[in-house]
């Protein structure tokens, strides 16, 4: 069952792995943006998570602790962002960009001496005979735990945002922080928690790059994945399941074009490489052609700081 020399089962199994970092980071960022905060520092938090997770995993010998370390490193960096934007009311765009630059620099510094070390391996979840089922086996039962975790997080975030009180409050803060404040919700505290969550998710995504996908530490290892995560959030119009589609689309096409080349296909790779971006633009055009700004699904307070005295 090959198409153009490519086995679709292997392709799907590979793209699920490839998409994990951008999926985790985009999910976190979607939550942050739903609370009305635009954190452009995803790339910085990812790479700090990559080195934080790498160092933790190498020092402790445990890849699970490595992912926790990555999440912690990302959350710590996002705490700086939260302090600057929620307490000192700094401009979110500028602070987010600074966060990326800061994260790249700090990770490079922290990574000195970790070049060329192999991290402990993250094994596949043992499903026993299930993994040997043709077609379904490699796709559903052939992955490490982080792949399943990322899928579970999609469902969890979707459920929390849609059906729980916490999700409703978060959305209220993102749509109209004055009204939320008038109702007695602590806008900045809620946003702080959302930012920390986003940082932890981005950090975990970064750790996946350095612990599983590449497995090694190299300066600048995330190489722009954080920016793709930001694009996916917009592509998904801030909805968790669409984030999943977006992440698999971006990840899938990147894998597909490499596989097509390796298989000697005649399809020009440039078109495939730009396809996700073209689709993002198309999606934006389509969804924003509707009823004004609300139609894009963007949280109304996205990027606006809140101060109670106003």
């Amino acid at each position: 069952m090959d198409f153009g020399g490519i086995n679709p089962v292997t392709l799907i199994a590979t793209l699920m792995v490839t998409s994990v970092p951008i999926l985790l980071a985009a999910l976190g960022e979607a939550v942050v943006e739903r609370s009305g905060v635009l954190n452009l520092g995803v790339e910085g938090m990812m790479i700090l998570g990559a080195i934080g997770g790498f160092i933790t995993a190498v020092q402790t010998g445990s890849p699970v602790l490595g992912f926790l370390g990555g999440a912690l490193a990302g959350a710590v960096l996002s705490a700086i962002f939260a302090l600057l934007t929620q307490v000192f009311l700094a401009n979110q765009v500028a602070t987010g960009l600074a966060l990326t630059l800061f994260g790249l620099g700090v990770s490079s510094l922290a990574g000195q001496g970790y070049n060329g070390i192999k991290p402990p391996a993250t094994g596949k979840v043992p499903f026993g005979p299930l993994a040997d089922i043709p077609v379904l086996g490699p796709i559903l039962f052939g992955h490490d735990w982080v792949v399943y975790f990322s899928l579970a997080m999609v469902a969890a975030i979707w459920w929390v945002l849609r059906s729980t009180r916490a999700g409703l409050i978060l959305r209220a803060v993102g749509e109209n922080h004055d009204a939320a404040h008038a109702l007695g919700y602590r806008v900045n505290r809620i946003r702080l928690l959302a930012i920390l969550f986003g940082g932890a998710m981005a950090g975990m995504g970064g750790a996946y790059v350095s612990l599983v996908r590449v497995p090694q530490w190299t300066d600048g290892i995330t190489a722009g994945a954080g920016w793709i995560a930001l694009a996916i959030v917009v592509f998904a119009s801030w909805r968790p399941w669409r984030v999943l589609i977006g992440a698999y689309l971006f990840g899938g096409i990147s894998v597909l074009q490499l596989n097509l080349q390796a298989a000697g296909s005649a399809i020009p790779v440039e078109y495939l490489s730009m396809a996700p971006y073209l689709i993002t633009i198309l999606v934006l055009v389509v969804i924003s052609s509707g009823k004004g700004k609300a139609a894009t699904g963007a949280p109304a307070e996205l990027g606006h700081n809140f101060h109670a005295s106003r």
């Binding site: 086995n7 970092p21 790059v209 996908r213 995330t222 894998v255 490499l258 298989a263």
Partner: peptide, 19 residues
């Protein structure tokens, strides 16, 4: 189409190995 992108380079190697 990059000089430096470890994840993509790893993916490229993986695609070759799969072939």
């Amino acid at each position: 189409f990059t000089w430096f992108d470890p994840a993509k380079e790893a993916d490229a190697a993986k695609a070759l190995i799969e072939q």
